[in-house]
Design a protein around this nucleic acid. Structure first.
Length: 587
RNA sequence: GCGCUCGUAGCUCAACGGAUAGAGCACUUGACUACGGAUCAAGAGGUUGCAGGUUCGAGUCCUGCCGAGCGCGCCA
């Protein structure tokens, strides 16, 4: 049954309830079966329930369909037609369609409810490394994770964002030692020019340190001692490390601000945060007999997965040298998120190559009794960003693509495209729009393909005004806004007695499906479904726009059409917002 | 060796197990003095990698092949 948490129940849900009611009355023994209601090309909706249930009912599908059709009570259903082997083609009355439109217009939430209410969801995403430049590899996790945080949050989930910074490790010993020995090095943001970031400077210094480490055994020794000092909490070393973390976070924030993601400093919970918990975590795993000694290290052997030699694949809980790696941290992390954060859903938005790692972590957490059936843990995996050659995206020189450079490039292309389209824009407005369009283009391109697949980064296609692009949707929004402005942005009221033109009906039904789409996104954790929906909505609007003139129409038709314009504009803007993309008034 | 993911129009991508597999780009032919040319209408383009199976029904689920990418102890 479609009950629950919908502020405005979509027609699809109302029809589903009606079909369920018919099933209950006609065949009580089949009560509770899926009514199998879908949008349809042949009518407003179709139910395939008769096909699915005929065998259990012991009758021919067509006969069962006829039986159901005769059993509908008064509801949202206007007419029912039997078609093909047993499809029910269901049409809803115009009045009901208008009713949905005005109900959705009435509230700020577009009639979308909060089905995720009561669910506490931890989303782990972005996770750049301290003292390292953010690069193309951080693009997808940051964008996808942020969109999911927005969608789930809007649907009522209590979202806890976790930016699992790479802020710990032996490399910091080397870097700190080098900085101590080279006080003349500039790397703090205040000391740098605007086009250089702290992480960029630190990245260079780290390379220099690495070089010295390899060349000078004395420096290597001092670096190792510095690691020990850091890990044992030596105040001066710790202070320097904290400074590096803080400066790096400034650089990350510059990127986050530009990308328009929700992450804040409070969301930063890096690897170092779990250091004090590693001991207890390990003790618990050892006492439970899950973590065992192997070749002087402490490991957890998988009971499900084997490696190249046919032996079980291990998680490395404690290295032979007594150190801890990311396996240990991730075990402490999942334990913390379950026990302390009390999450009932855990999402890890990382590269699909880490699939095995998370499988092992989840398995271990289950064996340890932390991860129960009441908790949903999911690796939200995504594919690689490819260059034009079909290989992982690199600079022409073969280096890593800095995220800032990639964004600069996209904004520059967007600026050219927008300037050509609208030469009258003043420079300040052009700057702002180019930024919104360029960033939006990158984000939309990333979000609009199914996330498990690799995709090719093609700036020219991203910033195109045609096709399934962010720019197209932003433009669609501005065009509708233009109509509404011209009408004086009136308060509109709908006259539900006016019959719907086919293009109006198609548009209105699509608008009504917004909440259904969002629920799909939150279930499948696939933002590209929202992209596909918005694109379809924009196309439905185009068809409507061609077929039904708005401003020249007579009242009350004009008012009804303005209402469709208004709800379309709001839905587009809202949907883009959930993708983290701006919807400017003009372009 | 084992495992995971992917394979759909020339290209980039869609399609909760549902009717004739859809869009965009590119291509062909037409149309338009309206709300910002966001063009619009028609056409062409497919054995959904191959072969079996489950099902009333399979691009979708299962099995086996083929091809591509990735992963499998002390890096995250």
């Amino acid at each position: 049954m479609f009950v629950n948490h919908h502020e405005v129940l979509p027609l699809l849900g109302q029809v589903a309830n009606a079909v369920s009611g018919a099933i209950n009355r006609a065949r009580p023994e089949l009560a509770g079966s899926d009514p199998v209601v879908r949008r349809s090309e042949h009518s407003d909706f179709q139910s395939n329930a008769a096909l699915a249930l005929a065998k259990r009912a012991g009758v021919k599908p067509r006969d069962l369909a006829a039986e159901l059709a005769a059993t509908f009570d008064d509801g949202p259903i206007g007419s029912v037609e039997l078609s093909g082997p047993g499809f029910l083609n269901i049409t809803v009355p115009d009045k009901a369609v208008w009713g949905q439109v005005s109900a959705r217009m009435a509230g700020p939430r577009l009639g979308v409810g909060t089905p995720e209410e009561g669910r506490r969801t931890v989303i782990d995403y972005s996770a750049p490394n301290i003292a390292k430049e953010m690069h193309v590899g951080h693009l997808r996790t940051t964008i996808i994770g942020d969109s999911l945080a927005r969608v789930l949050g809007f649907l009522g989930a209590e979202v806890i964002r976790q930016n699992h910074l790479g802020d710990w490790g032996t490399q910091f010993g080397m870097l700190i030692q080098y900085l101590n020995e080279h006080p003349e090095a500039t790397w703090r943001r205040d000391e740098l020019s605007d086009d250089t970031s702290a992480v960029s400077a630190l990245d260079e210094l780290y390379k220099a340190a690495r070089k010295e480490f390899d060349a000078d055994p004395a420096f290597a020794d001092r670096s190792r001692s510095r690691v020990v000092a850091l890990q044992s909490g030596d105040p001066a070393t710790l202070a320097r490390w904290k400074e590096i973390v803080a400066e790096s976070e400034k650089a990350f924030r510059d990127i986050y601000d530009r990308l328009g993601v929700l992450l804040t400093p409070e969301d930063s919970v890096g690897e170092s945060f779990y250091n004090p918990m590693l001991g207890d975590t390990i003790t618990e795993l050892v006492n439970a007999g899950i973590a065992v000694d192997s070749e002087d290290a402490l490991v957890i052997f998988s009971e499900e997965v084997t490696g190249p030699d046919g032996d079980p694949v291990p998680l490395m809980v404690r290295k032979r040298d007594g150190g801890y790696g990311y396996d240990t941290t991730d075990l402490a992390t999942i334990r913390y998120r379950i026990h302390d954060l009390k999450a009932n859903r855990l999402l890890y938005v990382t590269d699909s190559r880490q699939a095995l790692h998370f499988r092992l972590i989840f398995e271990a957490a289950r064996r340890a009794g932390w991860l129960t059936d009441a908790i949903d843990a999911e690796h939200v995996a995504y594919g690689t960003v490819l260059g034009p050659d079909g290989r992982p995206f690199k600079t022409r020189a073969g280096g890593t693509v800095r995220l800032m450079d990639l964004l600069d490039d996209a904004v520059a292309r967007a600026r050219a495209v927008v300037a050509e389209k609208n030469p009258d824009l003043d420079p300040a407005a052009l700057d702002q729009i180019a930024e919104q369009a360029g960033i939006g283009a990158v984000k939309y391109a990333d979000l609009s393909t199914s996330r498990v697949k690799d995709y090719a980064f093609d700036v020219n296609r991203m910033v195109s005004f045609t096709g399934n692009t962010g720019v197209y949707l932003q433009y669609a929004h501005t065009r509708i806004r233009s109509i509404l402005r011209k009408a004086g942005d009136p308060e509109v009221t709908i006259d539900p007695t006016i019959p719907l033109e086919p293009a109006e009906r198609a548009l209105a039904l699509e608008l009504d499906a917004y909440s259904t789409t969002l629920v799909e996104v939150s279930d499948a954790l696939e933002p590209h479904r929202l992209c596909g929906y918005l694109y379809g909505l924009a196309r439905d609007f185009t068809t409507f726009y061609e077929a039904c003139h708005v401003l020249n129409a007579d009242e009350p038709i004009r008012g009804n059409r303005l209402a469709l314009c208004q709800l379309t504009a709001r839905t587009l803007k809202h949907g883009l917002g959930l993708l983290g993309i701006a919807a400017p008034e003009r372009m």
